[in-house]
Every structure is written in C-alpha cells, then in structure tokens.
Write a protein that binds this DNA or RNA. Structure first.
Length: 555
RNA sequence: AGACCCAUAGUGUAAUGGUAGCACUCCAGGUUUUGGUCCUGUCAGUCAAGGUUCGAGUCCUUGUGGGUCUGCCA
C-alpha cells in the first residue's frame, strides 16, 4: 500500500458521511469501496482521481477497496484492457481486496434477480423497436407513454425472458424493462431497460450469454453483492440514484449507498476517450503511453512519480462543483517528490565549448560531488574534469546585463564542484555565433578547499569534453496551447495542439549516464527532472523531460 | 423547457449559525556551490436581492450563472 498521505486536512463531504455512518453503527462500522472501470480503454488522470478517492477513503476508515471490471457490454470490452488497468492501479500504489471482480461474475445472479422482479410484476418484456421505445419515453418535459407490452402476464414475461436467454430472438427484438413510472420527471425512472439481446462473444463468459444487463441493472447490484457500503461515483450518475435505490429496495438486497462527487479536470489536459484516441490514431502522439498523454501509462513514461499523482489527487480535494485544477499544481507535486528523491547529474543540453587556457593539456582531475543535497544518504560520486568543458550556451553572454550571474567577458563563474573560472576571450563564427570561450581558472579555488578569496556570484554545470557522452533528450511540453482545449464552441481541440510539445535534442552528459536503466529518474542539474525512456539503450541513451526546474531568472 | 445538483481569492478546497483559513499560482525579500530546494512577506474571496436571527458563507425565498439527464453505452 502507498505511503500515508497528509492527514492534517479536514474531512471532505464523503468522509463526513462515512464518519457519521460509523458513529451511528451503520454496517457495524465497516467501510468497503470499489473502483469500477469499464475495460474498454486506458486509465487517465481522471481515473487516477477516482482510484485515489476510493482507496484512500477506505484506508482512512480501516476499510477495503475492490477492483471490479464493469464488463456488461461485450462489444467494446477486451481482456487486453483489463491487464493494463490492473498494472496502472498497482503502479499508482494500490492493492485491491482479493482478486479483481467482474460484473460478469454475477450474470447468473443478476438473471435470478430479474426473474424475481418479473415475478413481483415489476419487470416486463418489451417487443417495441428501439425507435418506438425512444418515442414512448417522451422528453424531460413531456411524460412518456406506457408500452403496449407493459401489461403482459407474469407467466408470459417469464417465458419470453427465458426465450431471450435461450437465443430464441434476434438482437434488438426484445428487451426486459423495469416497471417504473413513464411520467416521472426523472428519465431514468421511465421503465429503465434491464436487459438487451446481443449475440456477441464476451471476453470472459464467451458465448454463454446472448443477453446482457445494462449498467443500471448491473452496477448497483454488483455493489450490493460485494457488500460495498459506499459506492462513490461521478456526478453524472446523480440522476441514476433514485433508480439505484429503487432496485435495491425492490430486490431487497444489501443497501449500498451511492455518493456522487465531481470528476477532476486538469488544465491543458483532456480525458475524452474519443479525443485521446484521435491523437493516437492520427499520429499526433506516438501512442497511448506517449509521455505527453494524460494516461497513467503516459505519465509513468514521462517520469511523474506515482506518489506525486496521489498527492495531487488527494490535495485537489473532493466536492460536487465542476472544477479545473491548474496543471501547475501537478507540476508542483511532481517537483516536490522528485526534489527529495532524484540524484543530481551533469548534462549539458545545448553545449558550448570552454577551453581553460591555463589548465594542463592532458591533466584529468576527479571532482567529488554530492548526489542529492536533500538526502545525504544518497552519497557522492566523482566527476572527470579537464582542460576542455562543455557548458550551457545560455550560461554565456557576450554582453550580459548586470543581473546575469553567469559567464561573460571579464566575468567570474563557479563551476559546480569545480573551480572558479575567469572569462578572458571568446571566438565567433562568420554568423556571429559564439563557438568557443576561453577562460583561466584559479588553481586555489577548488570546490571544498577554496582559499582563493575570489568571488563568483553564479554557479554553472559542465561536463568534460573528453569524457562526455551523447544522449538523446526528448524535451516535452504541454500537449495543448490552451488550458481548456475542448471547451471552445466552434473550435476543434486539435486546433490547440501544441506543435512544440516535443523537441528532440542531443545533449552532452556525464559518462555514468549511459549505464542507467529505463524508468530511472534524475535531475539534470539546473535544468529539470528527467526519466530514462523505455527506448533507451547503452548505445543510444534516451531521456524524457518530466518537468523543468522552476526558473525565476529574468532580465 | 421539466427534474435533480452546484455556486467561497486567479485556481482548488476548508470554516457545530459566532475572528473567512489552507494549498497552488503571481509578486517582493532572505538563505543557498542548482537563479532549484527551503524560509518570510504582499496582493486577493463568500453570485445577486430579499427574509429569519443578537449574529448568515452557512438556514428560507426568488433571481442569475453553471452542470447532468431525452443510448438496447458506462
């Protein structure tokens, strides 16, 4: 199980309800939640929120959380998705109670429940066409009409429903409906469809069934069967709650309680399955796990630690109003975790050569440098230092402003864990571009044993030319240029695709970096946090920018 | 249009009917061999109008704004 999240905050509204339930002895104080994804796609940041809410709330009250795949629609669901869903939840840091469950585990029980309702005269087989049913349903303002098949006898309904199960009827020819109230202002109460005929292969039950229950006649019943005490779902199911309760009441089964909360939206991200799929299909991104994608697979590859996602979701809070959390919050949580856990390494993203004119040609020194100033236990290592170094092109200016603390003609700068340099000259090419910088070093200014008395305001990173290795670095930025790309009427979200969301560069890195394993997270000193990509090899190391360091420098 | 739900700084989220707080962002400073981290500070809020009350962000009414619902999807 995951590390404890901060426990200082006050209870959210769901926790208050549960807290009251416990105080009142409801369900003998037991708390049991569930995460019920449909196995027809990949999990994204929105699912992460639901996962964190369900697992953390249960944990907080000493309860359990089930994983249940809501597989009642055989046409869209696949085993392949199940495996990815399980992997993503585990990666996020959670373990569900026992084995994962499936709504399809309960098909027989659900069938029995339906028979029970028919026997009570509360359900009937309807021969109407889909069009007729839609027509008779009415609209929110006009009451619906009763189906002409509504008053069939219990015996006939029983016989017909059994016939449905026994493959006697073609797809779409009949449905089983709950006898609700066709004049209810709540559309879900207007004789909700319980079963439809689909002669299709199911990923788990194979060809055992040709009738499948609808969400409304499967979800709440599954909750009940599993003894779910608090069924937490998103706000769009609010209108389903009367039906959820109606079935529990008529079926006389364990009374799970549905509580709705607002789904989480994040700026610059979209979570629409259809829109995400289009990005993949039309090659805007490399796949569902492209590091720019808001999928858990994408964020994992990007290098965002699961703990950061947990804290982000937890700190975003739980309430009922529509929200858009600023992506800056996720970035904050990401940096927060990475700052404490990653080793600092030297990597020059945009190299400029520096020659130390008074340093011997063939001398090599090994400079001791601490791996993580935030965590002494991470130790230190040695960096090769020589006469020619790469520094960041941004760290040199021909004519720098006064507040620029880096290198410029006549200026001093400290090389991190090295010497202080004094810039004496530089060389440009025909276009005026600086191609080489010439410096002198102060031999008695070595890091840790500096007796020079020389002042240097800035500190820059570097790597020895003779020892540097090339590495592919994928610089990622937000996928979209607009905080709410899919909320503009008349404008397609693809218009906001950020063409600069990926830039591939070749960096000069310290030699040890070609040995790192995929998945490893590092801080490139003064630049940002990076993660070794799954494409990475010793011959061609690949790093993904997770998130840059904050940069408060401006002219 | 009818039903249901929601409304607190830029963003998100708190506040038994009793001092509107926290976090992120922004801005300003301090520390720093990362212009990072850390620390301090500033700016900034109860949708509107009535009502109940000694007292309303909280309760009531109306309005305004937003969300969900008219799949044999979940």
């Amino acid at each position: 199980m995951s590390e404890e999240l901060k426990d200082s905050r006050s209870l959210n509204f769901i926790e208050k309800i549960i807290s009251d339930d416990i105080a009142n002895g409801k369900h003998a104080g037991k708390v049991h939640t569930r995460f019920p994804p449909e196995p027809n796609g990949y999990l994204h940041i929105g699912h992460a929120k639901a996962i964190v809410v369900n697992f953390e709330i249960a944990k907080k009250f000493g309860g359990k959380t089930n994983l249940r795949l809501d597989d009642t629609n055989p046409t869209t669901e696949e085993t392949h998705y199940v495996e990815n869903i399980k992997k993503d939840i585990n990666w996020l840091g959670y373990e569900w109670e026992g084995e994962e469950r499936y709504a399809s585990d309960y098909f027989e029980q659900l069938y029995e429940y339906a028979i029970g309702l028919i026997k009570k005269g509360m359900a009937y087989v309807d021969d109407s066409t889909p069009e007729e049913i839609a027509e008779m349903r009415g609209t929110p303002t006009v009451p619906g009409k009763n189906s002409p098949y509504r008053e069939r006898s219990v015996e006939e309904n029983l016989r017909l429903f059994e016939g449905m199960r026994n493959e006697e009827f073609p797809d779409g020819s009949k449905v089983l409906r709950a006898k609700g109230d066709m004049s209810s202002p709540n559309m879900h109460m207007r004789d909700s469809i319980m079963y439809r005929i689909k002669h299709e292969h199911h990923h788990r039950t194979g060809d055992d069934w040709c009738i499948y229950p609808m969400y409304d006649f499967a979800h709440g019943q599954s909750d009940s069967i599993e003894g779910i005490t608090h069924s937490l779902c998103s706000i769009e199911f609010e209108n389903h709650r009367p039906l959820y309760d109606w079935y529990i009441d008529k079926l006389e089964i364990f009374p799970s309680r549905q509580i709705e909360f607002a789904r989480m939206n994040v700026s610059y991200m979209i979570t629409s399955k259809r829109k995400l799929k289009k990005l993949v299909d039309e090659k805007y991104v490399s796949g569902w796990d492209d590091p720019r994608m808001p999928t858990l697979a994408g964020m994992r590859r990007r290098g965002i630690p699961p703990k950061a996602i947990r804290e982000f979701c937890d700190e975003a809070g739980v309430a009922k109003r529509t929200n858009v959390i600023e992506i800056e919050k996720l970035e904050y949580n990401t940096r927060q975790v990475l700052n404490k856990t990653t080793a600092r390494v030297m990597a020059v993203l945009n190299p400029l050569k520096v020659v130390i004119t008074n340093y011997p040609e063939d001398k090599v020194e090994y400079m001791e440098t601490v791996n993580n100033p935030e965590d002494e236990s991470m130790g230190s290592r040695k960096l090769p230092f020589s006469r020619e170094l790469y520094i960041e092109r941004d760290d040199f200016m021909i004519d720098p402003p006064k507040k620029f603390f880096r290198l410029g003609p006549g200026r001093n700068v400290r090389l991190k864990s090295g010497y202080i340099l004094h810039c004496e000259d530089f060389k440009t090419d025909d276009s005026g571009e600086v191609v080489e910088v010439y410096c002198a070093y102060y031999p008695d200014s070595k890091s840790g044993e500096d007796t020079s008395g020389v002042k240097a305001k800035g500190v820059i990173h570097w790597v020895s030319v003779a020892h540097a290795k090339d590495a592919e670095v994928r610089m990622y930025d937000r996928l979209f240029t607009d905080p709410t790309p899919d909320a503009h009427e008349g404008k397609d979200y693809l218009e906001f695709f950020n063409e600069k969301s990926l830039e591939v560069i070749t960096a000069k890195v310290e030699p040890a970096l070609v040995e790192v394993e995929p998945g490893r997270r590092l801080q490139f000193m003064r630049k940002g946090y990076f993660c070794v990509d799954t494409d990475s090899t010793k011959e061609n190391p690949v790093f993904n920018l997770t998130i840059s360091l904050r940069d408060s420098w401006k002219k």
